[in-house]
Amino acid sequence: MPTVTKNLIIINVLVYLGTLVAQSYGIDLADYLGLHFFLAKDFNPAQLITYMFMHGGFTHLFFNMFAVWMFGRILEQVWGPKRFLFYYILCGIGAGLISILVTYIRMNILEAGMSPEAIATVFQEGLGVLQTNHNYIEPHMASLNLLLNTATVGASGAVYAILLAFGMLFPNQSLFIFPLPFPIKAKYFVIGYALLELYSGFANNPNDNVAHFAHLGGMIFGFILIMYWRKKNNNHGTYYN
C-alpha cells in the first residue's frame, strides 16, 4: 500500500479509537475537532482539517477507509504521494466550506420565516441558549438550533473527490459494485453517485443526518483541481490520462 494512503487510514483509525477512549471519560471530541458552523460558539478554523479525520461510528469509518484503500492507492501511484495528499486535503477543506455555505443559506431561509424578536434572542443571548430552551412558539427555532449546533465529521468529502478522480482518470474501467449483479463503468458510477447526492441534498429529509452537499463539495473542488492540472500539463506539452 502506498505511503500516504496507508498513513491516512492509520491516522483515521487512531483518531476513531481516541474518540472512543475520550467518550469513556465523558468527552465528545466532535465538540472540538468536528466542523461547526462559522457563527457557532464552538467553531475553530482548524476544524476544516480536523473534521475529516473524525467519524461518527465504525461503519462510517470502515466504508470511508475502504474507499481510500480501494481507489486512493491507485491515484497515489498515478499522481505520486505529494499531489495525492494535496488533492485529498484540499478537497476535504473544500467539502467543509461548501457544507458551511449551504448551512448559511439554509439559516437565512429559516430566518426569513422568524420574527425579529426570535432572531434577536439567538444572537443577543448566544447560540447556546437554543440547546437548552426549545420552548419557542416558532417551529423554525428547532431547525435553526440543529444547523448551528451540529458538528460535521468524516472523510466523505475527500473520499467523494477520490471517487471523482478515479472516474475521470479511468472512465471506462469496469467496477463490480454491490448489490448490482453486473459491472458498471467508473464514469457512470461516479455520475450516479453525484446525482444521488444532489437529490438527497435537496430532499432535505429531517431524519437524514448525512452532509450530502459536503460530498458534492469535495467532488466540485476535485473536478476544478483536476481540470486545472490537465490544462497546466497540456500547456507544457504533456498529457494527463
Rank of each mutant, 00 (worst) to 15 (best):
104 Y>S: 14
152 T>E: 08
79 W>R: 01
66 F>Y: 15
19 T>S: 15
41 K>W: 09
48 L>E: 06
181 P>K: 11
119 I>S: 11
122 V>T: 01
14 L>D: 08
53 F>Q: 01
234 N>C: 07
108 N>Y: 11
236 H>Q: 13
199 Y>M: 12
164 L>Q: 01
108 N>P: 02
3 T>G: 04
170 F>I: 00
145 N>R: 12
98 I>R: 00
3 T>W: 14
26 G>C: 11
155 A>S: 14
128 G>T: 12
193 Y>D: 10
25 Y>Q: 12
115 S>H: 10
1 M>D: 01
16 Y>D: 04
80 G>H: 11
98 I>L: 09
172 N>Q: 15
212 H>F: 09
87 Y>E: 04
16 Y>T: 08
40 A>I: 02
207 N>Y: 14
32 Y>Q: 11
125 E>A: 12
203 A>H: 14
131 Q>G: 15
21 V>H: 03
49 I>F: 15
13 V>W: 04
216 L>D: 00
28 D>M: 11
148 L>V: 09
176 F>P: 00
105 I>H: 05
120 A>N: 11
162 I>A: 01
197 E>M: 15
123 F>M: 04
191 I>P: 05
35 L>E: 02
53 F>R: 02
167 G>A: 01
179 P>W: 07
144 L>F: 14
46 A>S: 09
22 A>W: 12
47 Q>V: 05
194 A>K: 03
63 F>Q: 06
145 N>F: 05
150 T>P: 07
124 Q>T: 08
241 N>L: 14
135 N>M: 12
142 A>C: 08
114 M>Q: 08
24 S>L: 11
133 N>E: 10
200 S>E: 13
62 F>C: 05
123 F>P: 03
102 V>D: 11
1 M>V: 08
151 A>G: 02
52 M>F: 04
23 Q>D: 05
97 L>V: 14
183 P>C: 04
173 Q>L: 13
175 L>E: 03
36 H>P: 03
229 W>C: 00
48 L>T: 12
209 N>P: 06
84 F>L: 09
5 T>M: 00
68 V>Y: 06
175 L>C: 05
184 I>T: 09
57 G>K: 12
25 Y>P: 03
88 Y>G: 06
167 G>L: 02
64 N>K: 02
186 A>F: 03
9 I>H: 02
12 N>D: 13
104 Y>F: 15
18 G>F: 00
30 A>M: 10
41 K>C: 03
57 G>T: 09
116 P>N: 09
144 L>S: 07
86 F>G: 10
213 F>L: 11
